[in-house]
Each structure stands twice: as structure tokens, then as C-alpha cells.
């Protein structure tokens, strides 16, 4: 489950007409499409979610024509560096490891907490079995914590493993878990303390794309400045979520 999945579900963004500039550049935005509320495919099969709105707004402000592409998480970076799309907007936390290979813009999502969810309060988070999506910062964290790591290709399967008892708990982005726990009707609950991981979520780019990074950086800054980014955060993650100052 790795390589580029060129999605059918895309839109060339219609911001073009208003900003009809002569040298508009087409930028291909890579995302996963399976990580609500950050990004997911809606009923119509289009990319939707917090990052869809942020990405569209960034493109509008940077005066770029943008196109959404979905790609499997596991190979999302190799396909970026080999040029199959130009940015990654897929809930990707900024980490030192990744920063060595690709560049990030400033974060558009504040450093987020990861959390454990489990069917009961009394699970052993450092000695039990904890599931996580393979090759995420959460998976690395679980491997370090001493718990037995059970890895799944998609976050959904990792959740399913807790439901069916394969794993004692799941460790994932808290914002990903919130709607699941709400919908579970008490079957699942947060356990233990939140764990801050990473430096927030930024747009990933090739290191050789300095110019594009500056454009996107400026657009994100302007969204932070006028508060529109915070509005989107609250819209998608609720009133209690962290916002930018």
C-alpha cells in the first residue's frame, strides 16, 4: 500500500478567475485522504476537511492554482521528493527526522497532543499492547515507551484493533481520536496523560523548492495574522482546541 495514488477526486481551484494573473503556477497538493478531520474523502469522493480548507486558502492568498492529489501515507515523502506532487498537506508533524529530507513551512496547526484511547481506565500503557499507524511519530513513541507496538497500515485498522481486543490501547493524534471517542458512546475513552509530540503540522516541500516555500510561508503567516486560521481550527476541531496567539 505505498505508491502514488493519483486521486480522481480533485479540483483545480477556482480562485483563478478573480486573480487572473498571467503567470499562475499549478501546484499539486499531496494528501492522504484518510485522516479526518485533517483530511478525508467526503461522500462525493472529494478531498475534504480542515486541510482542504487551509490548503485552498493558502493557494488563493499565494495566487497559485492548486490541485489536490491523494497518495498513500507510507510513500508520501518518496513521491514528493521524486516530484509527483509539490507539497504534502496531510497532517504531517514537523520532526527532525523528516526535516532532514524535506522542508517544512511554518506550522499551520499548533504542536498537538497525542493521546491514548482504550476501552477501560486500567490498561498498562507501558507494558501492554498499544496499536498505532505504522511509520508515524506515534509508532516511534510507542516503540520507545516499552509497550508492545502493534502496527497497522491505516489509522482505522489501528482503532479497530482496540475495539476487537487485539490491542489494549491506541496511541494517535488526539484530534483524530476525539470524534471517534464521541461516536463510540462510552466504549472507548482517553487514558493517561496527553503526550506532546512534534512541532506542529506544516506543509512539506522539497528542499530545492525554496521559492514556493516562501510563498506558502507568507500565506500561512497572513492567515495567522488576520485570525482566519484560528477560525478554521475552531470550525474543525471545536472550541477547546489550541489556537495560535
Amino acid at each position: 500500500m505505498k505508491t502514488l495514488i493519483l486521486s480522481t477526486a480533485l479540483l483545480a481551484l477556482g480562485s483563478g478567475a478573480a486573480l487572473a494573473e498571467s503567470h499562475m503556477q499549478t501546484v499539486r497538493l499531496g494528501t492522504e485522504g484518510a485522516y479526518p478531520p485533517y483530511n478525508f474523502l467526503n461522500d462525493a469522493g472529494e478531498v475534504d476537511g480542515f486541510e482542504r480548507e487551509v490548503g485552498d486558502e493558502i493557494c488563493a492568498r499565494a495566487e497559485l492554482t492548486c490541485e489536490w492529489v491523494t497518495n498513500d501515507w507510507d510513500s508520501i515523502i518518496p513521491n514528493l521528493v521524486s516530484g509527483n506532487y509539490d507539497t504534502i498537506i496531510a497532517g504531517m508533524s514537523i520532526t527532525d527526522e523528516r526535516d532532514e529530507v524535506i522542508d517544512f513551512t511554518q506550522n499551520y496547526f499548533p504542536p498537538a497532543a497525542s493521546a491514548y484511547a482504550a476501552p477501560s481506565e486500567d490498561v498498562d500503557l507501558t507494558g501492554g499492547v498499544v496499536s498505532a499507524q505504522a511509520t508515524t511519530i506515534q509508532a516511534s513513541h510507542v516503540a520507545d515507551s516499552g509497550a508492545a507496538l502493534l502496527e497497522f497500515a491505516t489509522p482505522d485498522e489501528a482503532v479497530a484493533a482496540v475495539r476487537n481486543g487485539e490491542a489494549d490501547a491506541i496511541f494517535a493524534d488526539k484530534d483524530f481520536l476525539v470524534p471517534i471517542i464521541e461516536a463510540s458512546g462510552g466504549e472507548l475513552m482517553f487514558v493517561g496523560d496527553d503526550v506532546p509530540l512534534g512541532d506542529g503540522i506544516g506543509v512539506g516541500l522539497r528542499e530545492s523548492d525554496g521559492e514556493l516555500r516562501d510563498k506558502l510561508d507568507a500565506a500561512i503567516q497572513s492567515m495567522k495574522d488576520d485570525g482566519s486560521l484560528n477560525e478554521l481550527l475552531i470550525k474543525w476541531f471545536g472550541e477547546e482546541t489550541q489556537t495560535f496567539e
Binding site: 480522481t8 485522504g33 461522500d43 475534504d48 482505522d156 471517534i180
Partner: peptide, 28 residues
């Protein structure tokens, strides 16, 4: 095919079949 970047039937079956919470779909 899924590995080769074509959205094939297995990709969609996985995507459609996975749990859907009401917040993100009209058909949870």
C-alpha cells in the same frame, strides 16, 4: 494496482468500508 498508484477496487473497498463517524459523512 493499489501499489502502483491506481485507485483500484481494493483501495475503494477499504476506504468505503472503514468506520465513518457522523461528523464527516451524511452516511455514518
Amino acid at each position: 494496482l493499489f501499489l502502483l498508484g491506481v485507485e483500484d477496487i481494493v483501495y475503494w473497498a477499504r476506504e468505503l468500508g472503514s468506520t465513518k463517524t457522523p461528523q464527516f459523512t451524511a452516511y455514518p
